[in-house]
Amino acid sequence: MSEISEKSRLRTENLNLYYGSRHALKDITMEIPSRAITAIIGPSGCGKSSLLRVFNRMNDLIPEARVEGNVYLDKISVYGEETDAVALRKKVGMVFQKPNPFPMSIFDNVVIGPRRHGVKHRDELESIAENCLRRVALWEDVKDNLRQSALNLPLGTQQQLCIARTLAIEPEVILMDESCSALDPESTMRVEELMTELAQSYTIMIVTHSMEQAARVSDMSAFMMIDDEKIGRLVEYGTTEQIFSTPKDKRTEDYITGRYG
């Protein structure tokens, strides 16, 4: 584990999350390595999305959500006094469960982030668009209809576009919350290939309800579950290989072998 912690990008220490009086995550301490895919698995409602949304402070949108403990992106304290959530989200991109392209053209979708962040020149935007669309293997398909509405694309392609849009803001970390669950098997495979490819340069965290997907693509796996008080806990965390071959916790084993949930 020592070499992992050396390069680790994201870290939580005794993280607790509350929605009003509802205690949703309890005492989560974990280190997420850089340039790797970390999968969060567990039954529905155990707090996977809640945990993921801690890292880009998406929970700030929920007025009654409250975070205790520490979360770090490198040396930055994510919930620190002087940390700006808007600046943080430029470093920690997020791809959602349902593809959510904006109702505008394919081109505008990709470059909307850079545009807002101050890139003005047309050719610069064009090269960003081409670059990002190439990285998600979409360029050849859409280069002739960049002006068309993104909403008319098939779902799988929309999700690729959403990933391209996230890449365009040059994040360091990419969070993906069940980003394949709305896709057909073929598109899922494409997105998975993309994740593996992106993991060479980004820190990637995914939430997935598919054991197979976690086993296929991830380097690290975190198994979460609610305890007797219905509070989300991190049950076991380790390399995917270890979690899937020799789980230490009985609950992990039950879940992975399909005896639970």
Binding site: M58, L61, R89, K90, M94, F102, P103, R116, T166
Partner: peptide, 27 residues
Amino acid sequence: LPRQYKEGALALGMTHWQAIYSVVLPS
């Protein structure tokens, strides 16, 4: 509007106001 539009905009590091004028209003 679907909540995902605004969330998507904010997740790209836009401020609330940027999200409003560049995504919410056009949508």
